[in-house]
Amino acid sequence: MKFIRPNDMEGLFQNIEENNDRKYFLAGGTDINIQIKNGTIKDAEIIYIKHLKELNGIQIEKDDIVIGATTNISDILNSKIIKENLPFFQRSLESFASPLLQTSATIGGNIANGSPTADVVPLLLVLDAKLEIVSKSQIRIIELTNFFTGYKTNIMKANELIRSIIIPKKAENGFDTFFEKVGSRKSLMISKISLAGLKNISHNKFTTIKLAAGSLNEYPRRLYKIEEYLTDKSLLEIDFLKVEELLNEEITPITDLRSDKEYRYHVCVNLIRTFLNE
């Protein structure tokens, strides 16, 4: 295991530019330390980034809230900016892991680790978050929804990292919000299902619907087909059998150590129903 602590962003870029081998960024350490312990990460290069100020902090930039990748979950929970602009996002993060892990875990780490159960991702998906991905020579902004490519894989190249998460300031404005995280207990919980939703209604019809599910696919995903089906319909016009059918196309729940696929699927159906009815 090789360890690198770059002095600044320039040093960081130099390191990741030079070395394309197996490398991992260490920020909060709540995931990586467990993976090192159980042997999933070995003989790798660890690059420490928690001290780099460019990657940390919460700011308003024009119409966006920009959250540095190594910002701790607890900082988001305590942020005035977030409280004023994204109260639903803030409130929903309270169920993130546990208060003790919130102080170490980072928002960028939760995304980059790529777990299907990542707590922040479904929320960020319905908030239309973007990622600022940087390398030595390039900055590119991509939609979070296009970031993941499979189980624990994403579109980033070996010389890139997430610098920040960009959320439109008004992402929650005017929406009814919904977030449900289902697990075997209320804290220290790894979700079996999570569902985030935004909706607004005009003349009894859903004018906008945004839905994202966690723990139901190889990575958390927006449920676009369902969104499309529901948009411009009133509650009475919705055929829930159709919703179930579409959901079958959108999610691929599995039976694993924590739950069953049938259970996961049906709870997801129930939650969508409740979200629409509330």
């Binding site: 546990s98 207990r185 804290s187 790894i190 924590r258």
Partner: peptide, 15 residues
Amino acid sequence: RMHGFTDYALPTTLD
């Protein structure tokens, strides 16, 4: 197959 406390739901203060 169990790994530890992650897979065994001991009640927390909220449960």
